[in-house]
């Protein structure tokens, strides 16, 4: 997969998040790091930065000094208690006296598990440094936040995004039109992982890629059309719209956050009266926030669909 093939190995190779990378470089030079929180949207280089930092600290054999856990896969308290403790308590062999534990998607941990983690972090600070990776630092409990150096990752700037994709395009000897590049950026807004995945999928169709190719790949990867679902709801067929939503989430595994982002885009592109667009944006934003809080995707999004159906009804009646 190109995402892994072209994942930067060292901090020097990282093209974006320059201020963050500079600070991390200085950690590597002084051979000491604090506990860290890397927070920011997906596909912006958080995990990569953590891996690069470890590489620059320990050199090629960095894997021996590193443990990677994903809180979404192992979110129980027991994992933190056992796995983390076992790893954290044993002193590292080598020049650097501590190991690094990367805890990815840490915002998915229950607060109990986070409390347990907090104590572990305190007890084994000498022998282990933690890098917590999260989409939203707000979901990390206060006491952990105050023990960590915070780093905020932002979506890639357009020029960084383009430069990175151009590099891959050259290496893989594919051709891509500017419009194709626009299409990818529009679709993923600087989420590099998705951008590269869709680029590779587009390249699987043929060596030259334009915007049509990109749309077709995105369409095929997300087989149910969000726009179609919105239209169905607005026409008053809530039940039909909910079925489409269910297909997206359950059958094709589309993430709720993606669906909501597309709904947001579509609403402002739609023919709705302008004042309705703003009203609905409020509802969309609320649902988006609730998903972050761990609410159920289908239930929240279908409540939104019911609001769309209501809006469709009102607009029609108001002429």
């Amino acid at each position: 997969m190109w995402t892994e093939k072209y994942r930067p190995k060292t901090l020097k190779e990282m093209v974006n998040q320059r201020e963050i990378v500079e600070r991390l470089k200085s950690f590597a030079e002084t051979r000491n790091i604090p506990h860290c929180i890397f927070a920011g949207p997906p596909g912006t280089g958080k995990t990569t930065a953590a891996l690069c930092l470890a590489h620059d600290l320990y050199g090629e054999g960095y894997r021996e000094h590193l443990m990677e856990l994903n809180a979404s896969d192992e979110r129980g308290i027991n994992v933190v208690r056992e796995t983390v403790k076992t790893f954290a308590r044993i002193r590292s062999i080598g020049e650097i006296p501590f190991k690094i534990l990367i805890l990815d998607e840490a915002d998915n941990m229950t607060s109990d598990a986070q409390q347990a983690l907090r104590r572990t972090m305190e007890r084994f600070t000498e022998t282990c440094r933690f890098i917590l990776i999260a989409n939203y630092s707000g979901k990390i409990i206060e006491p952990i936040q105050s023990r960590c150096a915070p780093f905020r990752f932002a979506y890639l700037k357009r020029e960084d995004h383009d430069a990175y994709l151009q590099y891959i395009i050259e290496q893989e000897k594919v051709k891509m039109t500017d419009k194709g590049l626009d299409a990818i950026y529009d679709a993923f807004g600087g989420d590099l992982r998705r951008a590269v995945n869709s680029l590779q999928a587009a390249a699987s169709l043929g060596r030259s890629i334009d915007d049509e190719t990109v749309y077709s790949v995105i369409g095929r990867a997300n087989p149910v059309d969000v726009r179609d679902m919105i239209t169905t709801a607005m026409k008053g067929d809530f039940i039909g719209a909910r079925e489409k939503l269910r297909d997206m989430i359950l059958k094709y595994g589309v993430a709720g956050s993606d669906i909501i982002r597309q709904i947001h885009i579509e609403i402002f592109r739609s023919q709705l009266p302008e004042n309705w667009k703003v009203k609905l944006a409020d509802v969309i934003g609320e649902v988006d926030f609730r998903l972050v809080q761990g609410a159920d995707e289908e239930v929240q999004l279908s409540a939104l669909l019911a609001r769309l159906a209501q809006a469709g009804y009102e607009v029609q009646r108001g002429g």
Binding site: M1, T3, P42, R193, R194, N197, S198, Q200, A201, S204, L205, V217, R220, A221, N222, Y252, G253, V254, A255
Partner: peptide
């Protein structure tokens, strides 16, 4: 969610 759909297309 993120990788598999593209893997399918490929």
């Amino acid at each position: 969610n993120e990788v598999l759909p593209y893997l399918r297309v490929i």
